[in-house]
Design a protein around this nucleic acid. Sequence first.
DNA 1: CCAGCAATGACAACATGCTGACATTATTAG
DNA 2: CTAATAATGTCAGCATGTTGTCATTGCTGG
Lengths: 146, 146
Amino acid sequence: MHSPKRMLFLDFVLSVFRLNGLLISEGDAMAEKLGLTSARWKVIGAIALSGRGLTVPGIARALGQSRQAVQRITDVMVSDNLLFYQVNPRHKRSVIVTLTDAGTEVYNMLREVQDPWALGTTEDIPIEELESGLRLVRRLIQKFDK
Amino acid sequence: MHSPKRMLFLDFVLSVFRLNGLLISEGDAMAEKLGLTSARWKVIGAIALSGRGLTVPGIARALGQSRQAVQRITDVMVSDNLLFYQVNPRHKRSVIVTLTDAGTEVYNMLREVQDPWALGTTEDIPIEELESGLRLVRRLIQKFDK
DNA sequence: CCAGCAATGACAACATGCTGACATTATTAG
DNA sequence: CTAATAATGTCAGCATGTTGTCATTGCTGG
């Protein structure tokens, strides 16, 4: 009934909600100096990590979000000259979202803030704990993401 | 530079974002049959766990959210007869949010769905992994929540 | 006591996410 | 090849969260 595992898991779930909110705050604080928000560096990050460029639905799939939500963000970022829409030879309508030079520069500046933050945050946490935590989170993601 | 720990942590952060979205979807799916949303069972849960009743800012503090966000949810839930505002003898304006009988019933029905879900989700995950994952998440929360 | 500070409710503006619906373009099955 | 299906862009509506502001209430240090 009140099995320890059940209580433990619900505690874990609520803690993930809480951590999620705090991480977004942290991200917003870091991105603020660069005129970004956490939603925007998610998009920049997804494109940068892809190497090439991604379509809007491609970014959405990478981030696990709806394509409509991503579209709204990319439209604004194109207005802000961080991204541009490149003609897609493989699809007449679905353009490829690419980083402009300004976007690449912002991404690099972001990393100069983000990297020390990541290292500072984890300096007193053994790498094994991080690995095992990531494994758990991934496992749960896989379980829910069908 | 590209230290393994840094990459690991960023991976962890992005995975937490992803898991957060999936958990909200799971919560919405479970709560839907009861006419709730995940935002609302967070509020119901916070009140139920408190035993007595909580003020709106009290719920917000428990959930780590802004009091305005909670106020909006509780206002709707009072309209839906799940909650009611009880006069607070200790504060002329800040009422105490309490579960109605209907609200209590919904909370109990929710648990009948949620408990099997929690057990099913974790059936193939050792309790030690859950404990260590929770410890990590808590540690990060404490680090960011000042 | 009371003057200043903190907490609260109320309202507004905004950012971010979701879903639904529709038309258009791609892909696939037959 | 063609018809059905899937993917995409676009627009709309809505839920949930944030911050800011202001008036009111409560608390606290002199």
